[in-house]
Computed example of a mutant assay.
Amino acid sequence: MRSTFTNSGQILLIVFFLLMLNITLKYVSFDSDVAFLQIKQTEVTSIPGYLVIFYIHVFSSIFTLLAGFTQFNESLLKKRPQLHRFIGKVYVLVVLFLAAPSGFFIGLYANGGFYSKIAFVLLSLLWFYFTLKGFLAIKKHQIASHKAFMLRSFALAFSAVTLRLWKVILVYLFHPAPMDLYQIIAWLGWIPNLLLIEYYIYKQKNK
């Protein structure tokens, strides 16, 4: 299979990454009331460790998006396999020990009530599972399985982008109530990603 992401796809990834980087840079002050944290003051003040875990999630997640630029490019795999393996190992470590566990914790306190919490907790569990399965597959030299699971993993990592895109679209078109909006985007941010990547994996298997 040739490069998973075409040149146009790579350009889109760069644009989305820069947008997410701009959002992430708002948190470099490590303040307790910046950006999204302004509406999470109950959690910040009453839940021990919430602020630290929130920042772990923010800064570890931005790396997982950056890793996607290198990990699915067939040309890089052939020319720089050692770089691919190194970045891949770092990606796995970041997801398994930082991004997914912190996402699970934050998901327990997600806005939007029970249904939002279920969505974000399930997202973090699947992200952990797919990443671990991809890592174990390559250890067994199961290349196709490794690639499929890592594509699923990155599709969930990319939910950081799609969640925000859906939020903009829904607010612009329908003006939903804030809690309704959180309940919708909690699921819409990642399920379409996973469905699209499953379709892509299916098409590749049946070529």
Rank of each mutant, 00 (worst) to 15 (best):
M1S: 06
M1R: 05
S3K: 04
T4A: 09
N7A: 09
S8Y: 11
G9R: 06
I11Y: 10
I14S: 08
N22C: 09
T24G: 02
L25R: 02
V28L: 14
A35N: 07
Q38D: 09
I39A: 10
T42G: 00
V44E: 06
F54S: 04
V58M: 11
F59A: 01
F63S: 01
T70K: 03
E74D: 12
E74S: 12
K78M: 12
K79N: 13
Q82Y: 11
L83G: 00
K89H: 09
L98T: 02
P101Y: 14
S102C: 04
G103Y: 13
G103K: 08
G103V: 12
F105V: 14
Y109D: 10
G112R: 09
S116K: 06
I118L: 14
A119F: 08
L123V: 03
S124N: 05
L125C: 14
K139W: 11
K139R: 15
H146T: 07
S153I: 08
F154Q: 10
A157W: 04
W166K: 04
L170S: 03
Y172R: 04
H175R: 04
Y182N: 07
Q183W: 09
Q183L: 01
W187N: 06
I191E: 06
N193T: 11
L196V: 12
L196G: 12
E198L: 15
I201N: 05
Y202F: 15
K205Q: 14
